[in-house]
Design a protein around this nucleic acid. Structure first.
Length: 110
RNA sequence: CCAGCUGGCCGGGCGGCCGCACCCGCGAAGCCGAAAGGCUGCGGGUGAGGAAAGUCCGGGCUCCAUGGAGACACGGUGCCGGUUAAUGGCCGGCGGGGGCGACCCCAGGGAAAGUGCCACAGAAAGCAAACCGCCAUGGUCUACCGUGGCAAGGGUGAAAGGGUGGGGUAAGAGCCCACCGCGCGACUGGCAACAGGAGCGGCACGGUAAACCCCACCGGGAGCAAGACCGAAUAGGGACGGUGCGAGGGGAAACCCUCGGGGGCUGUUUCCGGCCCACCGUCCGGGUAGGUUGCGUGAGGCGCAUGGCGACAUGCGCCCAAGAUGAAUGGCCGCCACGUUCUCGCUCCGCAAGGAGCGAGGGCCAUACAGAACCCGGCUUACAGGCCAGCUGGCAAU
RNA sequence: UCCCGCUUCGUCUAAUGGUAGGACAGCGCCCUUUGAAGGCGUGAAUCGUGGUUCGAGUCCAUGAGCGGGAA
């Protein structure tokens, strides 16, 4: 378990990461961009309005954030920016599966 | 006990581990900074709702517009009175409709200011008229036609110009009469809406204003992405100053020195000027990204008393209670309550099928609707489950 | 967070308050050796719930859904 990574907060930063590698999955889409500076990794979360109402969107983002904090932070490469786009299934899947899947995706193994 | 009506309230509890945001405190620990201070650290406190939702109304607040007032246009509201900062909300009353009842529902001003519309059907849809009819009379009096009288009956329609009964008549008709309905209405009660109503009128006035409209009242527009402040990088704007070409010399270079001559355009040439271009430097202003603020003491909450049928008002006391901005208030777990379902046992009712209650054990769910975004007052919509009070109808018992 | 607009057959579109029409697509039949084209026929809709009206796709109220604009 690594330190809790920095957050992406600005729209411009999110748009920049969109140019990077995209890893699609059943639970979420992960976008990765190497900033090239070798500093600590950063992560941002996107949950679109299509997924549900505000309660559902908040819960998806919080579960993803918790999974990153407790388990998957150490799987991030220094110098990378990650954007995790949560899908509807994040709401219902058991937390253990969510952590395993997220960790696998962040390491980039298929 | 069953069925129902109305009003109000709650909308999981306790605990463990790991986290988030803001605020307060502690530092002679570290880093950044000239400083103020900030970041990391430690401790403590606080941290979503009854609808935070929809954005349907009303305000506060901010900016813009506006000399004052009125008229017109446009939009909204629409029984009466009260309440409130204000409302289209709320309270009370009135009128109409529904329900055995508690109670519920209603945009509920004006159709006698005017205009429009009322499809199809029907003779006729708003000036009253007359298709089939009825009656009288005339014609070559069976059947048909003409003239005159009538509007009871038939038929159409959502709606056809009072209803029932009697008198009356050639046939009929408020033509006359009784009752009912309708219209006007002195007067009485009420602040008013409205209610009652002596008397008068043979009946005249169809519906539609959520059609135009008339009347009364209200309304300037936009919205915290309002507005205010600070302000990179890049590009561009303005002001000031300098340089610009050629030759020679020095120097590694930047550059310096000397001489000629001031880059381009222009006023006829010179003097003296003006304008433009490129580069460099300094300064200024607008302003993007970004940041700070607005940003929580408010028509605030709770309790008590008084006035009022009530909405509410007044007084006193206590309390300070979220503040994010790709957006904090979470993740995982344990126990319990409530709920639901299954099994077993006991009791009661029943011929039986089965039903009710109590106890034990197991499973499920561990909650529904839903997340503050400047702030309030309402309305509307969504919602698992539960609690309290009052009232109505029925059954039983006393 | 705020401000606008729109919802009619499967799709695209009409309809002064008076039987919801048309095109394409679908299905059936005819024509053809078969198919296409063509012709004939046929099913299919007013976003939901209330209200006004004799009568509502249209008017009013209130919800739902979809789309757009303001960083």
């Amino acid at each position: 378990m690594g330190p809790n990574p920095k957050r992406l907060l600005k729209r411009a930063e999110f748009l920049a990461v969109r140019r990077g590698e995209k890893r699609r999955g059943r639970l979420f889409l992960v976008e990765v961009l190497d900033r090239g500076d070798g500093l600590s990794p950063r992560v941002g979360y996107t949950v679109t309005k299509k997924v549900g109402n505000a309660v559902a969107r908040n819960r998806i983002r919080r579960r993803l954030r918790e999974a990153v904090r407790t388990h998957a932070a150490g799987d991030m490469e220094p110098g990378n920016d990650y954007v995790i786009v949560g899908r509807e299934d994040v709401l219902t899947i058991p937390f253990g599966q969510l952590k395993a899947e997220l960790s696998r995706r962040l390491r980039g193994t298929r």
